[in-house]
Design a protein around this nucleic acid. Structure first.
Lengths: 233, 233
DNA sequence: AGTTGTCAAGAGCAGTGCTCTTGTTTTTGA
DNA sequence: TCAAAAACAAGAGCACTGCTCTTGACAACT
């Protein structure tokens, strides 16, 4: 990884940034499917062919945008988590942060959790950014379990042995908890994103109007499912 | 709605069917984003402009495909529900039917529950097909509640009053149950689709391998959350 | 100072959805 | 029965897309 600070290299870096900046802007307005390389170059006053020197293909630009989006979401979640106190409140903060970010960044959210772009396969470089939110969630679960605050409800089904290998992998993100906690954590985690997906993708239209309230209750329900202590009040 | 059985009308109906048939075929292979009106007409040996007489715009074709897909999913869920006995087993059957259908119809599933097609707004005519699966789910919940089999766990949070209006609307699909049951049903329902979404859209890649087992456990967890009786064994 | 590699830009290819026009065929109604 | 009306397939064309290849200019290293 040489980083020559020549005039050329600096110009290249600057233009690359400008491209992603306007791309992000376009993404926010027209969405991922409407993203046009030519439109971006038009706005930057450069030739349509020149952009391919910076991003050889459209997918490469998308990858950059995806990483950006994951980082943006991850940061939002991390901030929310840091500002909250108590495990249940931290969980609630994380839930609202995810939903809030999704509402504020419709198209970025679609890019991350919607239909995968056809032919696009997320390269390895995305995963570190992709799991930032999950890492925060994992900390809440493992810390609350360690202190004894988290107690999965007794009524949950027994975890099948065949889940052991998967649980071991997930444990890299949620340290030091038994399989049943891993399992219920996954149910809660998918429950969170399932709701946000439905809300973002229109499944709640003409049905759920008090969205904030309904979501808050859903998040509380998931907290109870996890076995987090009920919040005061 | 006049239905003249002239030769022209019959030819028109036949060709319309052929168009949707090949469109569905293409959808299954190249996905929604890769759907090309020209490719369809090419396969049918007709002029590219002629298709617009049958589907004025691409969105109109998509609407037809979406309705088809919803009906296909709805039928799969209805069949699974009818073949199962006992409320918990019916719930499990419905869950596996949804996931199974999604796995078998990747692109159709994406069309229904993935990123909405840009600029596309689902017309009213889709809703009857769109809620077929939800209707089945609603029946399981309301019937099990009526018989006393369904008992939401005590640990769940209290439903906020502001949810009342939404609950009333949802009750058109889940008859005769109180607000707290409506709320937990929504959490379970979104939990089901949240998991399937994650599995379909690649969030489980390199992590969850025993997918059938993990999903089955998730579905059981949701059943417990709903308050359905534990299955025998 | 001359060579080498990098770069923006132009032209062009193959593809897309969609529209307008043209000429034909079928249906309708006097 | 026969002309008017409606429905139709097809062709040409527009504006757009991502992407490639080539050309000529400029900066960077030797």
């Amino acid at each position: 990884m040489s980083a020559p600070n020549t005039a050329r290299a600096r110009a290249r870096a600057a233009l690359t940034r400008e491209i992603t900046r306007t791309a992000r802007q376009h993404l926010a307005t027209v969405g991922a499917a409407g993203l046009s390389l030519r439109a971006i170059t038009r706005e930057l006053g450069m030739a349509s062919s020149a952009i391919h020197r910076y991003f050889p293909t459209k997918d490469d630009l998308l990858t950059a945008l995806i990483i950006d989006a994951y980082d943006s979401l991850g940061e939002a979640v991390e901030t929310a988590d840091a500002a909250a106190h108590g495990f249940t409140r931290r969980w609630m903060a994380v839930c609202h942060a995810v939903r809030g970010w999704a509402l504020e960044h419709r198209h970025e959210y679609e890019l991350l959790y919607g239909t995968p772009v056809p032919g696009y396969r997320a390269p390895q470089e995305t995963v570190t950014s992709a799991v930032r939110d999950t890492v925060v969630f994992g900390r809440i679960v493992s810390e609350s379990y360690a202190t004894g605050a988290l107690e999965p409800p007794k009524l949950l089904p027994r975890v099948p042995e065949e889940f052991g290998d998967d649980a071991a992998r997930v444990r890299q993100l949620i340290h030091g908890v038994p399989d049943d906690v891993i399992a219920v954590a996954m149910s809660a985690w998918t429950g969170l994103y399932g709701w946000v997906n439905f809300e973002m993708f229109g499944q709640f239209d003409n049905t759920i109007e008090a969205r904030e309230v309904a979501f808050d209750h859903h998040a509380k329900t998931l907290a109870a499912l996890l076995g987090l202590p009920a919040p005061p009040g």
